[in-house]
Amino acid sequence: MKSAPSPTPRTRLARPAAAATALACAFAVTACGSSAPSATDTGGGAATRTVATAHGKVTVPARPLRIVSVHSWSTESLLDLGVKPVGVENSGATYVPSRYLKRWKAAAKVTNGADIDYERIAALKPDLIVGVDVPYLSKAYRKLSAIAPTAFASFDESASWTAYPDATARFVNRTAQLTRLKKTYTDRIAAVREADGAKLSGSSWDVVQGGFDSGNYWIYGSTSPVGDILARLGARFASATASVGKGRTRSVSYERADLLKDADYVVYYTNNDGSPANDIQKLFALRAFKELPAAKRGRVVGTADFLPGSYSDALGVVDSVEKALGGQSG
């Protein structure tokens, strides 16, 4: 098994990788996880509070009004919390979940991942910049923090997807909204478990996507975002996904489609229009895949929310799973 070529492969903005950075972030993760924000909000607009970030404690406005997001996960988290950022990253409209697309389009675009437009960010006069401390953004932290208080969530390849919306909510002081979103999510999980618990626990699931290396597809583990959601739903994992370690992805040759043979369901990543993302249709076209039990029974489940950046995205995954179970013929 090898490390994922990219833990969040859909965009360059969400393409961190480096284990070294993950190690470096581990210290910050500890800090972030253990300290709650210390509010000094007196009710006035100029009030500040201190939040723990990947780069230590940062003083941020108690009620930030002009927020710039430089990473897709924090953007999706903000939009889910009802916050309208003045500037966002440009990961390409095709990768923005349709539920956020209109609001994402309305915001100024300040980075495409490779290049950060510092002048444009400064011109937006932000009072807070948020993001995720992936390697390319970590390098930009010093310059960004010279423009406005900058709060990055610690990046760790093995962290749960929930770490990013949770951190973003803390940064922008919207924990009450976050709690509501979490409750909606957990209630929905409970409802699906109640309705389809037997089907979920009685079937085995693998999680895959196309990957970026020609001739290979990627198998995701049980702690991947979709794996985490499936686990909460009470699903059982098939051997391919079960064998992938925490925070890792397994790149596998098309010749080894047979690794998915004991899966009752295979979940894969789609574009917003429902088409297979990252060329996985090449795998689907092979007889070796078509002969798999999941493919024969029509249990190959696509979801555009494969890499959720918010609780609403996660609900999208739950919807896809529930829909697949609804079509179960036995």
Binding site: T11, S91, D115, G215
Partner: peptide, 21 residues
């Protein structure tokens, strides 16, 4: 590819020479 990240995402499948698939 800088102006269109989605194009970059697609181009990279072709950008590394490969006989596979």
């Amino acid at each position: 590819t800088l102006l269109r990240p989605d194009v970059f995402d697609q181009f990279r499948f072709w950008g590394v020479g490969s006989l596979a698939g």
